[in-house]
Simulated scan of single mutants.
Amino acid sequence: MKQFTLLFTILVAGMSVLQSCKKDRDPDFLMSNQEFVTQASSSHMLEIDAGNLAANDATSDTVKRYGTFLAQSHTAAFDELETLATQKGLTILSEMNDLDQNNYDVLDNSNAEQFDRNFLYLMLLSHQDTYSLYYNASRPNGVPDPQLRAWAAQKLESIEEHFDEAQELYGASSTQ
Rank of each mutant, 00 (worst) to 15 (best):
A112Q: 12
L30Q: 13
F119N: 02
S158H: 10
Q39D: 09
D98M: 12
R65N: 09
L148A: 05
N52S: 06
N136D: 14
S60M: 05
R25N: 15
S174P: 00
Q72S: 14
N33Y: 07
T91H: 09
L107N: 03
D129N: 14
L107Y: 00
Q167A: 11
E80P: 02
A50K: 05
F115V: 03
D61N: 11
F4C: 07
S132R: 13
L99I: 05
E82F: 02
F29C: 03
L169N: 01
I10P: 00
D129K: 10
D61W: 03
D98C: 05
K64W: 00
E168I: 06
S43M: 09
V106N: 06
Y135C: 06
D108R: 14
L133H: 04
A112M: 05
N33K: 08
S138A: 12
G51S: 04
G142C: 01
Y121M: 04
G89S: 02
L46V: 01
F115N: 04
D24N: 10
L30R: 10
D108W: 06
S174V: 15
M96D: 09
V17M: 08
Q147W: 00
F36C: 07
M15H: 11
F29Q: 08
N102G: 01
M1V: 14
T59W: 02
S41D: 13
H44R: 11
V17T: 12
M1P: 10
K88P: 01
K155T: 09
R25P: 06
L46Y: 01
L46A: 02
S94M: 13
S20D: 11
E95Y: 11
D98G: 15
L11R: 10
D145Y: 05
Q39S: 12
L169Q: 07
E47C: 05
D116V: 10
A76G: 05
E35C: 08
T59G: 13
N109W: 03
E157P: 03
Y131S: 06
M45K: 08
T59I: 06
Q176W: 12
N136K: 11
L156M: 07
K155D: 04
D105W: 02
N97S: 09
A58E: 00
L53K: 09
N136H: 08
L156H: 00
D108H: 14
V143I: 09
A50R: 03
L169M: 06
Y170M: 07
S158V: 13
F36E: 13
H74N: 11
H127M: 02
F69W: 09
L84M: 07
K2L: 13
K2G: 10
S94I: 14
D61P: 01
T38F: 09
A150M: 02
D105Q: 15
S110T: 08
I10D: 09
S73K: 14
W151D: 07
L156Y: 00
Q176R: 14
A54C: 02
M15G: 08
N103D: 02
M1E: 15
W151Q: 12
F4Q: 14
F119E: 01
Y131K: 09
Q176D: 15
L18M: 07
V143W: 08
D61S: 07
K64V: 00
Q87D: 15
L30H: 10
L125D: 02
Y134W: 05
